[in-house]
Design a protein around this nucleic acid. Sequence first.
DNA 1: GTCTATAGGTTGATAGAC
DNA 2: GTCTATCAACCTATAGAC
Lengths: 196, 196
Amino acid sequence: MSTVTSPSKSAQTRTRILDAAASLFRQVGYGAASLRDIAQKADMQAGSLYYHFDSKDELAEAVMLAGVEGSDAAVRGAVAALSPDASVLDRLEAAFEAHLTFLLSRSDYAVAMLRMLHQTPNSIQQRTLERQRDFGRFFGELFEMAKKEGVIKPALDLSALRMLIFGAMNWAPEWYSDSGLTPSDLAAQLRLLIES
Amino acid sequence: MSTVTSPSKSAQTRTRILDAAASLFRQVGYGAASLRDIAQKADMQAGSLYYHFDSKDELAEAVMLAGVEGSDAAVRGAVAALSPDASVLDRLEAAFEAHLTFLLSRSDYAVAMLRMLHQTPNSIQQRTLERQRDFGRFFGELFEMAKKEGVIKPALDLSALRMLIFGAMNWAPEWYSDSGLTPSDLAAQLRLLIES
DNA sequence: GTCTATAGGTTGATAGAC
DNA sequence: GTCTATCAACCTATAGAC
């Protein structure tokens, strides 16, 4: 009856495991997070994890994919929610704020993904990077429009700019605690940086 | 005789171990890098490491400290080498370039430090962070001078700015390969971002 | 200074009871 | 679906020969 409207029991358990894994992967990295610790955090025994996931690698990939897709959905959603005649800079600022909010307060998944990426087996890494490039392209198009419209400094190189701004955002979880600055403050500062 | 002019044999071995450890810590993180693998990369057996370091933690701390101090020395050196009447923006750009060059081409140590920091035991983490804050203060003072002289946008918040720019630089090892962009190009772009 | 050997504990994964 | 029990491989660290 409720197969569509509410998550099945199995799906709920799966989520509990993923939450626990994301939290531990974020804290200690891929290699040092043990399945026993993850299971304990999800209130089960290590062996039981294998009913839901075939291997540690598969679990890691699921966490990382959820991280990228969560950021992507948050950012695209925030931009789509703006009035259709919003300026490019307004859209960029909304995208900055959504990504920062997701990284800084909503989810262990995205931060776990960023920290794990270079520690996971190559095939997983490649698939995750491909998904991430798609996310990056969304920002890339916004930057391109901004340049064409002349609202950012003309001397800025688009590919450098995109990666530098991504860095500024992705690094935030490393230092942000409660500095008094909100994701919205930081997004405004980033806008200020690129504006001509 | 040569106790001062050339490194002792023991110091050379120590460096070989540190190089191997920095490379592996950078690649797979603190928890997943085994002493066996580190020893193999340094052409020795795992047990022999203990003649030079008391524990894996001590080895990790030595790598991280070398990472921070290497960045610090590179940046302060580059700024000190400028003509005494160089502008604040010139000094900032030189600092950017030195830090980026160190991160992107000179050393596994700094990148290993950045990636390991949150995976190491708390006491090590605290000591490393303290040393890192000292490094950060150097940049902070340059930003402060720039603001006082009015050469950066007045609406920029100094503490946000410092962390965002650090993020843009510290994230670079995650994406930089041979994009055609040099550390010098990136430093120029960063200068462009903050200039009023 | 570096080796071999090994202690004692943890790891990812599997098998089978319930 | 979850448990317990277990395997083989691996880990950090130590001891003692050379």
